[in-house]
Design a protein around this nucleic acid. Structure first.
Lengths: 132, 132
DNA sequence: TATCGTAATATACCAAAGGGAATAACGAAA
DNA sequence: TTTCGTTATTCCCTTTGGTATATTACGATA
């Protein structure tokens, strides 16, 4: 049995390791998180929720709900939706959406740095314990 | 309807805020996390899994599983269990358990500091966005 | 006006996690 | 040897988050 990762991109380690998740809360709960950011990037890449969802093995329904949630919680939408028209419509990342993506990755990078730093403390702690 | 907090101690904020969870992974997945640490403290306080679980509105079954998981994943058990005997038995935090608790709170405190620091970056970002 | 692939929405279904309750096992002390 | 409250274990139920599927709405373009 292959153990399924609990959350997008978060894999299991072989031995004691520091893990964490970070996100930004809005009025309705989660506003921005790792999975949502990936989704935004896929939308930018594919131009539609349908294909973006497919590309990351997410159901369209779930993807649409995430996009809707982000659009509702941000002052201006992150994703511009078009229904009907050429190609049946589509989805486009707005400049606000772009900014959100960039901001989150900065945040995320800082967090990874934090974890790396703390990892050393953990290793030291584990050594001390062994010696007891 | 009152929205239930997603996880122990993690409350909802009124406006955009940074949130996160950290934990330590072991061979079987989660090894140490916020809820497990609270549980260890309650066990130290009450001397039994039963009363510890009750004190934090957790089912005995769940609490036992968490304790068992921690004991299996640590070189030496964090909780010493006694079945039968005076008072029917009980649970006692070992010195390794004590150390784990202290270590986690240090880790946790650092993380809170990290979030506070990043919060300022977020606020700045939000202002910039408004001005656009 | 007919077409096309998408957004938008509703319904049914599924699986995992956890809760609750019931019961057996246990062993020191009276 | 009986008692006692706990650990240990099992079974069933509910909840929950998500998938799968089906249907409707849409509107630029040919």
């Amino acid at each position: 049995m292959t153990k399924k990762a609990g959350h997008a991109g978060v894999k299991k380690a072989t031995s004691p390791g520091l893990r964490g998740r970070i996100w930004i809360d809005g009025e309705e709960g989660t506003f921005l998180g790792y999975g949502r950011i990936i989704l935004l990037e896929r939308i930018r890449e594919h131009g539609s929720i349908t294909r973006a969802a497919k590309s990351m093995e997410m159901s369209y329904r779930h993807a649409w709900e995430l996009v809707d949630s982000m659009n509702r919680q941000s002052a201006r939408p992150f994703v511009e939706l078009a229904t009907g028209g050429k190609g049946g419509g589509g989805a486009r990342l707005t400049t606000d959406g772009e900014k959100a993506v960039r901001f989150f990755w900065k945040f995320y990078g800082d967090f990874q740095g934090f974890l790396d730093k703390e990892k050393k403390v953990l290793d030291k702690f584990m050594n001390d314990k062994e010696k007891t």
